[in-house]
């Protein structure tokens, strides 16, 4: 009997795709993974509509209204939701804007920047509105697991996914989660 494959979705919110690059660093282990899982919505599949999934891996923090929608949808569709990487856990680099007012940020970029033609703050409805501040995922939805790192190494992702899929207790070796 063939076991049904575990369905996984991934996405990057206010992140740099570095965590996804780390996922690709699994290299030949990706073949093993592909035996056991089926990718749903993910930058790797380019599937746009999220289906019901067992596991959602999210990179990046929450910086705008679209991020909120996507994250809410992931929370609803995924049985287990995992925050991956520094930005998802703490806001990371994008959250460095939190010490400034949103107005200051937008004016600096769009009104006072060098070489601007017709300076104005963009207001096209196609562009998601920015939140006042960048937030970690767990301030918007319940997160089941947190995998730290910038990015977490491929080994750390591999250990985590394997332990989770096989139902083992999660325990990452120190070498995979230390950063000094």
């Amino acid at each position: 009997m063939i076991e049904p494959k575990v369905k996984i979705a991934t996405c990057s919110l206010a992140g740099c795709f570095g965590c996804h690059m780390s996922l690709l660093d699994l290299d030949e282990r990706l073949f093993d993974l592909a035996e056991r899982v089926e990718l749903d919505r993910s930058p790797l599949t380019d599937i746009k509509e999220l289906g019901n999934c067992d596991l959602g891996l999210i990179e990046g923090g929450v910086c705008n209204a679209e991020n909120v929608h996507v994250l809410m949808e992931f929370r609803t569709r995924c049985k287990i939701l995992v925050a991956i990487g520094a930005c998802a856990l703490n806001g990371g680099v994008p959250a460095m804007r939190n010490q400034y007012d949103l107005k200051e940020c937008l004016e600096e970029s769009y009104l006072r920047g060098i070489g601007l033609v017709d300076p104005q703050i963009p207001n096209d409805p196609e562009i998601p509105l920015l939140l006042n501040q960048v937030h970690p995922l767990h301030e918007v939805v319940k997160i089941d697991y947190f995998l730290p790192g910038c990015p977490p190494s491929a080994d750390a992702i591999w250990t985590f996914v394997n332990q989770l899929l096989s139902g083992q207790p999660l325990a990452l070796p120190y070498t995979q989660i230390h950063y000094d």
Partner: peptide, 26 residues
């Protein structure tokens, strides 16, 4: 948390709000 951006852009289209029913989804 979107209010400041709404003011800065002058937007009031549906996507400029996070509606209650969507929030409840999460």
């Amino acid at each position: 948390a979107l209010e400041q951006a709404r003011q800065l852009t002058g937007r009031s289209d549906p996507d400029a709000y996070l509606r209650e029913e969507e929030l409840m989804m999460g």
